[in-house]
Design a protein around this nucleic acid. Structure first.
Lengths: 236, 236
DNA sequence: AGGTACGAAATCGTATACGAAACATATTGA
DNA sequence: TCAATATGTTTCGTATACGATTTCGTACCT
């Protein structure tokens, strides 16, 4: 009994936080994709990952399936899985989708955002402004996510919130370099953040907030597009 | 070469339509959920499905994982999978999400909708109007999907289109009964369809079309909610 | 020399087998 | 009689094994 209890207590911590191996694999692979260990195009060999994680291929396969359904990995029958690419077209699609769902999430979230949240967001934005001087794109992008998280995390509709998270995840691999490409955009971004905060603070109607949030993202996308000479969204 | 070609041609038909067993299982289970063979709450026992389909549990597991990621099935560790419920709350969330993504998809699709599409949609809507007399909720709902499909299928952003499809799939099990609950809504629905068509026809701006499409769906949701005395969306 | 065909290695796809967890049921003690 | 525990059955979770497919390198033929 004692040894069982001890064992389960020791393993318990791992078990509870980790869940099944399938889940562990899912978390692990996802984390590596998001943090950039597995860069886009990276080939996810089942056996290699299984060996690396210390368990067999079956849980790994299931994890890959889930990641596939989320669009983080591309899967080809009898060939294998690769980390989903972020070619300009994909980037465009993802950003556009995110502009829509994040806009909606922010609008739905707005009535539930309290003073404390606003203050936190404003603090983050201040850091971003500070960050502009000795510009660090990676740090800036991280703060950017923090900022927006505060605004949309209260969204009462879990489905929409989930879509927003998936969008951010898809962009994660590229994200750290977005502002590197369009450094000029960073300034405007900070200003738009403040404007967005004011809208929420003053209890602007949902439609106004949604449009503002959507445009804020579209503008980043457009800035990126004009850099890379790809087509405009409106043109579509 | 010849025999290879012949072989691949012969097997090709099976292969192309069927894909891997994992894929087959995915399609099969999904189909059964959508068509209502597996009703919400139905318990998806791996071994049973595997035996039924004629292969082992491994492909079935992977299929379930994908369906889980899509939200069609709910999965509980060491307990099993069940067809995702359609409790009022879930219905509300899904409809709201769909109103947003379908609205966006319709707006993005609008410029690409040709006269032929309009005509087809109008024909479907005429059938719906006809259908109102000897009211058949199931048929009506099917036509409703056909109608909207015409409007959003041209959406150039595959991600958004995918989200719309997922939304419709999630509602599929409940769908056939929505208009049974709120028959009065059917009349308005047909009228709104015509209004929507006119907007697209006359080249209304994207924002107007998006709002109209979104409201069209929200209205159905609100009608449903007022029947079932659940909370209103705006309240959230 | 260039291209094609063959073959080996790598990798995926699926089946089977066994261990673990959860649920239902029976049994025992108060 | 009721509650608590023990037992059995169902079902899931994972490992291992083997067959199938693709890919790449090499040798051979033109």
């Amino acid at each position: 009994m004692t040894e069982t209890a001890t064992a389960s207590a020791a393993e318990g911590i791992t078990e509870i936080t980790a869940g099944s191996k399938s889940e562990q694999a899912y978390q692990a692979i996802k984390a590596r994709i998001v943090e950039g260990t597995y860069t886009p195009g990276y080939r996810l060999v089942l056996a290699a990952i299984a060996k690396d994680l210390g368990f067999s291929v079956v849980p790994v396969r299931e994890a890959i399936r889930r990641l596939e359904a989320e669009g983080l990995v591309k899967f080809e029958r009898n060939v294998g899985a690769t980390v989903a690419g972020i070619d300009p077209t994909e980037y465009l699609y993802t950003m556009q989708t995110l502009s829509i769902v994040e806009g909606a999430a922010t609008a739905l979230s707005a009535p539930l955002v309290g003073e404390a949240d606003i203050a936190r967001a404003r603090a983050v934005n201040a850091e971003m402004r500070e960050c502009l001087k000795h510009f660090d794109p990676v740090r800036f992008t991280r703060l950017n996510q923090d900022f927006h998280s505060v605004l949309f995390e209260h969204c009462p509709n879990p489905h929409i919130l989930d879509l927003v998270h998936r969008g951010w995840n898809r962009l994660a691999s590229l994200r750290s370099s977005t502002f590197r490409f369009v450094p000029g955009r960073a300034h405007e971004s900070v200003d738009e953040h403040e404007a967005l905060l004011r809208l929420i603070e003053t209890g602007a109607d949902a439609d106004t907030i949604e449009k503002a949030a959507r445009l804020h993202r579209s503008a980043t996308l457009d800035a990126y597009l004009s850099q890379t000479n790809a087509g405009s969204l409106s043109a579509q």
